[in-house]
Amino acid sequence: MDIFLQQIINGLVQGSIYALVALGYTMVYGIMGLINFAHGEVVMIGTLVTITVAGTLIKAGMPVVFAGLAGVSTSVLVCVALGWGLERIAYRPLRNAPRLTPLITAIGMSIVLQNLAMMIWGRNYLTFPSLLPKINFEVAGAHFTAIQVIIVVLSAATMGGLLALIYRTRLGMAMRATAQNPAVASLMGVNINRVIAAAFVIGSALGALAGVMVGTYYEIAHYQMGFMLGLKAFTAAVLGGIGNLAGAMLGGVLLGIIEALGAGYIGDLTGGFLGSHYQDIFAFIVLIVVLMFKPSGLFGEKTGDRA
């Protein structure tokens, strides 16, 4: 039972991170129907910028709290600028292009960002500076750390804030209207360009936060880390029903927990035949099974039928 609880906790932490990244995918998808493959790279750059800024400041003798805050805010700023720039330079000119065209652009940008990051930060694994004290708790036989609690609480708070933004403000209303029908929304006086830019900016800011969390949690970062993370987050977004905010959040958490439980129990379930290195398979198998029975995800609406 304590293993079960432990895996639930681990899954919850990982899932919160997936959820934050998934929101970036789902917002952009909901509004413009584009899989922004470069989003994982934005998250990666968020992590690496934090390492550089916070690491340098800590070395210069600044208290860890301030160095950490400076690192996080710089990384959010950089990622926001990056997200805005991506939309402005790469995707906006393609708004009326065939559907697969922006997808290839996104892949191209992902390659560009990954290699830029490699030029700046090098090929090696970097250590993430420890920004939070290491405190351990034990409840009912399951161990968890202060970092894990903070990650879960902070991402829950961020998601709450996002929901408030989308459902309570004028910008949020404009975003929902654009997602439903861009042409009609623009006739009602919504500035489509601003709304799309906002989706990219908000998604990138969330991505930067997720990047910092990944860094603090695993204490290690690398220029290729964005790819798999982005893939999982995108899977989470689809699991929940892509384009649906609550779906992305629940999909993220669900995926994290499924993966953790899968990794914990696969050995027992198959009598030792399959080990925990099959962890990644779980995410995809669950995805395929869910989509077989609910073809537009757990909470999704119907989407277009063209490739």
Partner: peptide, 25 residues
């Protein structure tokens, strides 16, 4: 066969997952 009902990008992610499953195996 299991993905016949899926459309557009849902199909994309399932095929992507299938590719990863094969590679992991």
């Amino acid at each position: 066969s299991p993905t016949l009902k899926l459309r557009g990008d849902y199909l994309a992610i399932v095929t992507l997952g299938f590719g990863e499953i094969v590679r992991i195996f």
